[in-house]
């Protein structure tokens, strides 16, 4: 991928002759790489590199609920935590820890995982999903939730389906998928969504900008189409992690000789 983009970007540059600022068509996603099992200690983990975003997710649990009075006798509770590292942006050093934005995102991410995890299989427990943005370039919440989904599957937590995050947006009159930071800041609308591909359920929907009914309807169709690509990468990550384990057999066999 390209290095730092330092040049000043104007709104008029965002969409010209059918192409976006980085040469993509409206339906194109940025390069996406998903790796499962990147941390040793966590029960499940995942690194999502999406354009210039790098987001890591880790899962612990199910474990005893702390504080105890929060325990739910009918299901596991989800503790979702989305934070941005203070060095993750191109701007000045951010403040460590959660802020109002990340608290809100943690809340809607929690709702996503409450739906996707078969929480009733683990009453009175807690499942932690930590999502840390190490480098940000637009669309970090959908990258984080996409990573969290893979980390949950990697941890062996039962899921109805793996949630897929993807954002749609509007630049001038054009609807596009997967906005980068410039498109998010200078474009006319950003619509992060999380869906369950199997049922087509919408688990997260936030938006800013002014959108007509038709815009939103078309955005959904684009999201469902684009989400297939993200789902494929999630599966590929889990498959690769499995193959990596299987491949270790021979090398270990050799060192044991």
């Amino acid at each position: 991928m390209a290095g730092k983009v330092n040049k000043m970007v104007e709104k008029a540059d965002l969409f010209k002759n059918g192409k976006r600022i980085d040469g993509r068509t409206p339906m194109d996603l940025r390069p996406l790489k998903i790796t499962a099992g990147v941390l040793d200690r966590a029960q499940g983990s995942c690194l999502v590199e999406w354009g210039r975003n790098k987001v890591i997710a880790a899962v612990y649990g199910p474990h005893e609920v702390l504080p105890k009075h929060l325990a739910d006798p009918t299901k596991a509770i989800i503790n979702a935590r989305y934070v941005m590292a203070p060095f993750s942006g191109q701007e000045e050093h951010g403040r460590s820890g959660p802020n109002r934005r990340s608290i809100e995102i943690s809340k809607v991410a929690k709702h996503v995982f409450e739906n996707a995890v078969l929480v009733e299989q683990f009453p009175k427990t807690m499942i932690d999903v930590h999502m840390e943005v190490l480098q940000s370039d637009g669309g970090t919440r959908v990258a984080g939730i996409t990573a969290g989904a893979v980390a949950l599957a990697d941890a062996g937590i039962p899921l109805r389906d793996m949630p897929v995050g993807l954002s749609a947006g509007k630049i001038g009159e054009t609807l596009v998928l997967d906005l980068d930071k410039y498109e998010d800041n200078l474009g006319d609308s950003d619509m992060p969504f999380v869906i369950l591909p199997r049922t087509g359920e919408i688990l997260l929907s936030q938006m800013d900008g002014m959108l007509s009914r038709e815009d939103i309807s078309q955005a959904f169709d684009m999201i469902f189409e684009g989400a297939k690509k993200v789902r494929d990468k999630q599966i590929e990550a889990l498959k690769t992690s499995y193959e990596r384990m299987a491949a270790q057999v021979t090398t270990q066999g050799e060192t044991n000789q």
């Binding site: 809607v108 688990l203 900008g209 002014m210 959108l211 009914r213």
Partner: peptide, 8 residues
Amino acid sequence: LICSSQKS
């Protein structure tokens, strides 16, 4: 026009 949405 829809100017914001929030699923919770």
